[in-house]
Nucleic acid binder design. Structure first.
Lengths: 223, 223
DNA sequence: GATAGTTTCATACAAGCGTTTGAATTGCAA
DNA sequence: TTGCAATTCAAACGCTTGTATGAAACTATC
């Protein structure tokens, strides 16, 4: 217990700082100061800075992926193995968006860290990142089940656009807020998710897809 | 002249390396090696590394913005002051996408550099970046002229989503290519632009907007 | 062709980085 | 308690970074 309190203090501090400032500006000395531990503790517990980052990334991406797949499975089993497309997309972008922009501070750091990691592509992460492709393939497969007639290439573009909108919204929420003079409500996470899901459904060929009582046009107020 | 041949050699080398590897991994020594000049030349001609980056960013963003506004103006004056919404969006995302993924090497470096700059947000750039908001406001205004009835908040979300798709496509084109096993053709830049424009138009409330000769639907549904 | 002003060059510098070290401290079993 | 392993700590290491320096090489005007 007290054994790895130092370990987890380092992990949390690193995650918080990386999430906030990115990988470029955060040194080991910043991390240990934030964690309130000695400088050498990082190398003692993790071996090197790169291994710290890698461990952080692996554990967090496993958590995010698990959350996504849980939502997906729930939706698919509710629909007898075939979820409506909007539910699939919601399972894809929901966990990340709720994590980044929701109220939970701990999850917020984790989600923001993942966004940073997906963008800045620092060396130790680049090598592990290939696994994400496999994870996304499972969503591509689920989308294919939801939209049986749709050519594969459209599935991939739709998936790509959905992630693009979700990530950019997190990454540059500040710009959107300033650009819109606060008119775009970034605290309404659920509304935002629905907005992104709705646009993605349209991108995939519109409302013809599912039963989906109310896939309304994207350009409606949130929710 | 021979006077600023060193200057421009440094600028080009820096742009190329930053575009390729990001800001974190490129040192002044890398840049001067690529440019074939002496290490001290950077400080002699630019004063500091930060000022080099800032000058690069300012000059390139002016060029990109000019290109966008030219396209916008051409479209608006062709329509008597009011361009169809797809033309406005095309002027917004076209220059960057053509720059990044097109065949022109020089422009490619410039556009990729701008994407990096918009993501990694290194210190010297962060301060200047506010101007981009003003530039985007001009596009928001043009979109408002194209879609007079639409609430402002929808305009901003549409603008945001359009940029999100364009940027993510550039940034992570490799992932999309691998995910789709090469089925998504990333060499067809014009097709890609039309795809993003079409989805953005849908996001803004559907096809009701323009004549829009042959904006083929983003996704051809099976039926 | 001598001179003054630019520009280039090799080299050095201080600061910050990740990492290592070896001694001090702690926790726990016998 | 004593003994031993695990952990923490202050200090230093070697290396790379951006920057500064002063001499050398160039360019152009007279």
């Amino acid at each position: 217990m007290s054994t790895d309190s130092t370990r987890t203090a380092i992990l949390n501090a690193a995650e918080r700082l990386y999430a906030e400032r990115g990988f470029g500006d955060v040194t080991l000395r910043d991390i240990v100061a934030e964690a309130g531990v000695n400088l050498a503790a990082v190398n003692y517990h993790f071996g090197s800075k790169d291994e710290l980052i890698a461990e952080l990334f692996v554990s967090r991406s496993l958590a995010t992926n698990r959350e996504r797949l849980n939502e997906l499975k729930a939706a698919e089993s509710a629909g007898g193995g075939r979820a409506p497309i909007d539910a699939v997309l919601r399972a894809l972008v929901g966990p990340t968006l709720r994590g980044c922009l929701g109220p939970d501070k701990q999850r917020s750091d984790a989600a923001r860290f993942m966004i940073r990691a997906s963008i800045e592509a620092v060396a130790p992460i680049r090598k592990i990142k290939n696994r994400e492709i496999d994870h996304l393939r499972r969503f591509a497969a689920a989308m294919r089940r939801s939209l049986p007639g749709l050519p594969d290439v459209e599935i991939y573009w739709g998936l790509h656009f959905a992630l693009a909108m979700a990530h950019q919204t997190i990454r540059d929420s500040e710009r959107l807020e300033r650009l819109s003079d606060g008119k775009c409500d970034l605290d309404d996470v659920d509304g935002m998710i629905e907005r992104i899901v709705a646009v993605s459904v349209l991108a995939l060929g519109g409302n013809a897809a599912t039963d989906a009582g109310d896939t309304k046009p994207a350009a409606r107020r949130g929710r």
